[in-house]
Design a protein around this nucleic acid. Structure first.
Lengths: 233, 233
DNA sequence: TAGATTGTTAATCGATTAACAATC
DNA sequence: TAGATTGTTAATCGATTAACAATC
């Protein structure tokens, strides 16, 4: 038996913001664990991430009673609980679709493997790539998705194809019965409600950063003329 | 003179969620533009992105009056306005720090260039890389950041180094006077308030996707035994 | 015990959606 | 004009923070 601490009554889906913060808590808890700590308080955990302590407690309480009044949270135990609630206490076999520069970098990205995410099949439509192997894995034509997915379990698809074919490939992913897509293509995908999508648009992130830099109260650009010159003003 | 439409009175910083959606509006407007459309309504724009039409109007109204009652928004004009408010109506010279698999993929990522983001200097501490060139750019030792940044304008840093050195390198970025960091290292950076940071943790995105798949109402996993077997239950 | 810290309620704050007069 | 659509106000909804009794 695991633990006598109570689980939450309802099974309501956690808000997006809560899930994202819980992923950060897990990341930070593993840092504390490596440092040899055994317990941590909500205020310590929050301070390391720039998050209010009440927010930390509320986020964690969404998934269960993991803390001990007067003591805090036992790090080993909390890591196990968060892995479980996030669903990364198991292996996630992944299809990587699109072996351009970004796709090949994701194939070698070590942090995925450490989290239980394992790329087990590669797909691309470039005839120079189909049939070859990357990191020991053969590259299949994308229209073989359903076929390959029927011979072995594939739970997630990482999509790093050009934007103009992303929807077509997404349709093939859906047809292959894969229930989750991590979309790096800079386009909005239309999928049935049974399929989950998380979108990562790297240009949007950089645009957001540019906005923040330009509108920070620090008065950027420092020499106000720098940008104006570039625009011929 | 640009346009007679009014600008907003206050200069309050737009909320994070608004900026992210505005980046998506811009992306979608460019799709409509390529399709030869000249005007678009808030409901058309929202429908393409899965966003409520009132939300679209409110987001855009945050930055000014760009629409025409009864007509909608003129696509060319709105694209220009949004580029201006986001600050991507100019060039953003970027330093790329960390030339591992992800860094090299980002160097070749074409969407950055199309948005005015231009990688102009490379940094890495691997002695096998320093002095060599990638895409025609020489690789500098990271401690040369301030020196290089003093010889040419660098407004943003893309940080793709291992997590255990990310804070040290961030300190060097700050010391070099670069006011914005796009952080791909899976760690929280501590920087002065004058420096803006946008964090992209690819593992967190995959974790979020796993959570959504596991908790979608569609009753995943389809054969409930698949994951249980893997856990020996 | 006294001090620390949780889980949770109440208060605050902010974001989303609905509704509609103004306007093309 | 009649129909369409904006910008904006008011209403709703949700998320964050403060406060504190319960508890170790």
């Amino acid at each position: 038996m695991k633990d006598s601490r109570r689980e939450p009554a309802g099974d309501k889906l956690a808000p997006k913001a809560v899930v994202n913060r819980v992923c950060l808590y897990l990341r930070q808890l593993e840092v504390f664990q490596r440092q040899g700590e055994t317990t941590v308080s909500s205020s310590q955990l929050g301070a390391a991430l720039g998050i209010n302590d009440a927010q930390v407690r509320k986020d964690l309480a969404f998934f269960g009673q993991f803390g001990y009044p007067g003591i805090g949270y036992r790090i080993d135990g909390l890591i196990g609980e968060l892995r479980r609630v996030l669903g990364i206490d198991r292996d996630w076999p992944i299809a990587l679709i699109g072996l351009g520069n970004l796709g090949r970098a994701l194939l070698k990205y070590k942090h995925f493997r450490r989290r239980g995410f394992q790329i087990v099949a590669l797909f691309d439509n470039d005839p120079h790539k189909v049939g070859h192997t990357f990191d020991g894995l053969p590259v299949h034509q994308i229209d073989k998705l359903a076929e390959v997915a029927s011979t072995r379990t594939i739970n997630l698809a990482v999509l790093s194809v050009p934007a103009d074919v992303a929807q077509i490939v997404a349709d093939q992913i859906v047809a292959a019965g894969i229930p989750g897509i991590l979309n790096f293509a800079p386009t909005t995908l239309t999928v049935p409600p049974s399929v989950s999508v998380v979108a990562v648009d790297l240009s949007v992130q950089l645009e957001h950063l540019a906005y923040k830099v330009l509108n920070s109260q620090s008065g950027f650009p420092a020499p106000a003329s720098l940008f104006d010159e570039a625009n011929g003003r």
